[in-house]
């Protein structure tokens, strides 16, 4: 039975559906719209919190106070940052390739938002419960290279172009270990469905069964979204700002938003696939999910503010010569493990 408090969002959803009575088609359409809006709202709110959290975490790591003027303990800075970004002049340099330049940030953000459709935010709270969940996440996020390289090229700036060039090399290389690291879990659960993967972790989180997979996933995902120490694409001490050097105002804001949305995304996928998703005692599922995501976000910020940056060839070597073999070994180990498990407990699994 859904309890009030733990499943408050499900109750609301049911209430909305109830308004349409027998007209299930209309209810579906309305619910889809509501889900879409909710994804967007959650995303923007989360990003605002993350931006602030990043500033606070980094200040804390660096023995500083961080923003502390606006609002209680500086948390009003969230609004201030947003207003500042929106109020900036949208400056378009001459000689940029106009349409690709203008559309790249929108596509970048759009692609990221699409992925959120399959994440289970709580018990029964998957916006679209696809059979192909994990595969869908990987497929869509594979597209996000394109806007980056387009932005880099269309800016007509050598720094941007070099950033774009690096982005292709980096994102494509790290996509492979990223895919393989998730494969172990898929082999165990025998499904791509995100909700089913969370259900399967009722007793034991996959981070315990797949420690190698988890580590490879976190590293590869950080590289995939260009977070330090893999932020070569926008390495500010080398390329100024990489592919978004020429962006300002709200277009820069979109990149910024997308970047933190990506951070949210990889943390959410990590929480879903390895940390048991919304499963957890006492607290409502969505709260557990939020806690796990925040934990992952904090972990990744911690990495960012303590590590220097890789060099481009070292990054490639690490991806191809360390992470890829590790993730392949993990798949073999998982296969053997499943086989042995089935020998000991015949009849379990398929």
């Amino acid at each position: 039975m859904p309890q009030f408090g733990s499943d408050i969002f499900l109750l609301i959803a049911n209430w909305i559906r109830g308004l349409f009575g027998a007209n299930t088609y209309a209810a579906d359409v309305v619910m889809d719209i509501v889900k879409f809006i909710m994804i967007y709202v959650v995303l923007v709110l989360a990003v605002m919190v993350f931006v602030m959290l990043e500033r606070k975490v980094c200040a804390w790591m660096q023995l500083r106070v961080g923003p502390n003027r606006l609002g209680p303990r500086g948390w009003g800075q969230i609004i201030g940052d947003m207003i500042k970004l929106m109020g900036k002049e949208d400056f378009r340099p001459d000689n940029v390739d106009k349409w690709p330049w203008a559309l790249a940030p929108m596509f970048f953000l759009g692609i990221t938002i699409m992925v959120f459709a399959v994440l289970p935010f709580g018990r029964g709270m998957v916006p679209v419960d696809l059979d192909l969940g994990i595969f869908y996440i990987l497929a869509i996020s594979a597209l996000s290279v394109l806007p980056v390289v387009t932005a880099g090229w269309a800016s007509n700036n050598k720094y941007s172009l070099l950033g774009g060039m690096r982005s292709v090399a980096q994102m494509i290389s790290y996509e492979i270990p990223l895919v393989f690291s998730l494969l172990g879990v898929v082999m165990i659960t025998q499904t791509f469905k995100t909700s089913a993967i969370v259900e399967a972790q009722q007793h034991v989180w996959f981070v315990l069964l797949q420690p190698i997979g988890f580590v490879v996933y976190v590293i590869a995902a950080m590289a995939e979204i260009n977070r330090a120490p893999f932020d070569l694409i926008e390495a500010e001490s080398e390329f100024g700002c990489g592919y978004f050097t020429e962006y300002s105002g709200l277009r820069f804001g979109l990149f910024y938003l997308a970047e933190y949305a990506n951070l949210f995304l990889i943390s959410a996928v990590a929480a879903t696939v390895f940390l048991g998703g919304w499963q957890g005692p006492f607290l409502p599922g969505w709260l557990w999910f939020a806690i796990k995501v925040l934990f992952m976000v904090f972990l990744i910020m911690w990495f960012r503010w303590t590590f220097p940056r890789f060099r481009v060839d070292q990054l490639m070597h690490f991806g191809w010569k360390v992470l890829l073999p590790l993730s392949l070994a993990n798949i073999v180990l998982t296969g053997v493990g499943i086989y042995v498990y089935q020998l000991i407990f015949p009849g379990i699994g398929g």
Partner: peptide, 12 residues
């Protein structure tokens, strides 16, 4: 599945 492969391989 084909759609996802199309995105991953051709799009990505």
């Amino acid at each position: 599945f084909l759609a996802a492969v199309q995105l991953l391989v051709y799009g990505g």
